[in-house]
Computed example of a mutant assay.
Amino acid sequence: MIRHLVLFKLNEGVSRDEERVRASVRATMELKGRIPELEFWECAWNITDRPIAYDFAINSAVADTDALKRYIEHPAHQAAVARWREFATWVIADYEF
């Protein structure tokens, strides 16, 4: 199994309450039902307020590197990424477990 972690940081001046942000969160939450490779999926807003904290997190898992590649290339994933790209930056980590 491969764990796929993503941490999003909203750009300066961008609020969680903006419609484009809310729409991106909805699209992200819906990926679980749309991409068969996802064996585990959870995502949520960060609940702490610390200078080093990111704003939104995804914790997911896929079976193997082929499944990860299919997930990354899936049109629904690409559409969600395009939304976030408008107002946030992110970091990822993929590891086997």
Score class of each variant (00 low, 15 high):
92 I>L: 04
52 I>A: 07
91 V>D: 08
22 R>S: 08
25 V>T: 07
55 D>L: 01
33 G>W: 08
31 L>V: 11
36 P>C: 03
77 H>M: 09
55 D>Y: 00
87 F>A: 03
5 L>E: 08
3 R>I: 09
40 F>I: 04
91 V>S: 12
33 G>I: 06
18 E>H: 00
52 I>S: 06
11 N>W: 00
10 L>A: 04
74 H>N: 11
92 I>W: 02
97 F>S: 06
52 I>C: 03
23 A>Y: 00
78 Q>V: 14
51 P>W: 02
77 H>D: 12
45 W>I: 04
91 V>K: 11
1 M>W: 01
28 T>P: 07
49 D>Q: 07
31 L>I: 08
11 N>P: 05
29 M>V: 08
48 T>C: 03
59 N>S: 13
21 V>P: 01
78 Q>A: 14
40 F>R: 15
83 R>S: 10
97 F>G: 04
77 H>E: 01
52 I>G: 04
22 R>V: 13
97 F>V: 13
18 E>F: 06
7 L>S: 04
84 W>C: 08
94 D>Y: 05
70 R>F: 01
75 P>R: 13
2 I>D: 00
40 F>E: 15
84 W>L: 05
83 R>A: 14
28 T>F: 05
79 A>F: 10
80 A>V: 14
19 E>R: 12
88 A>V: 07
76 A>V: 11
1 M>D: 09
56 F>G: 06
27 A>T: 09
8 F>K: 03
57 A>H: 05
25 V>K: 09
67 A>K: 00
51 P>H: 01
30 E>C: 07
41 W>Y: 15
84 W>D: 05
63 A>F: 00
66 D>L: 06
84 W>G: 03
28 T>C: 14
76 A>I: 03
30 E>Q: 15
8 F>C: 02
44 A>E: 13
15 S>Q: 12
